[in-house]
């Protein structure tokens, strides 16, 4: 009986402190959320975007603007339609955090003129209150010759 009590106590502790999921699970979940992010941004689904971002999100736009979550949402609502394609991405889990790096292509209209930009993004996701949220995101405009590297 005594042994059972100890075992139960240790089991409770182990469960409480166990990581939320395995690295592979975390990486695939976050990559799915990245795809969702692209679609939500493209269709300007602000509700979906809101659920993906942490309240203290730090975001650097491809043009270098530093933005808060509220500013990102307002900007998404204000700009004209953008075609966003994630061309490649890899994810790496560190406990309750996942780093995603990839290349995206942005196609749209600005000032009546079409544009096509490529950016390298690095996103940091964190497992919080039972779900993954993005806490930091930076997209760097890619210059000619930096695509293959």
């Amino acid at each position: 009986m005594k042994r059972w009590k100890w075992l139960a106590a240790l089991l409770c502790l182990a469960t409480f402190y166990a990581p939320a999921q395995t690295s592979g699970d975390a990486e695939s979940k976050v990559r799915a959320l990245e795809r969702l992010w692209g679609e939500a941004a493209q269709f300007r689904d602000l509700r979906a975007l809101e659920s993906l971002f942490d309240e203290s999100l730090i975001y650097v736009h491809i043009d270098g603007r530093l933005m808060t979550k509220a500013q990102v949402l307002a900007d998404t609502a204000a700009v004209s339609a953008v075609d966003i394609v994630v061309e490649s991405s890899t994810a790496h889990a560190y406990g309750d955090a996942v780093i995603v790096v990839g290349i995206l292509r942005l196609k749209g209209m600005e000032g009546g003129k079409p544009y096509l930009r490529h950016g390298r993004f690095v996103d940091t996701w964190r497992y919080k209150d039972g779900r993954w949220v993005c806490v930091a995101s930076m997209t760097t405009a890619m210059q000619e010759g930096s695509m293959t590297k």
Partner: peptide, 8 residues
């Protein structure tokens, strides 16, 4: 674990 930079 990650360092991203931009000159824009």
């Amino acid at each position: 674990i990650a360092a991203a930079a931009t000159s824009s």
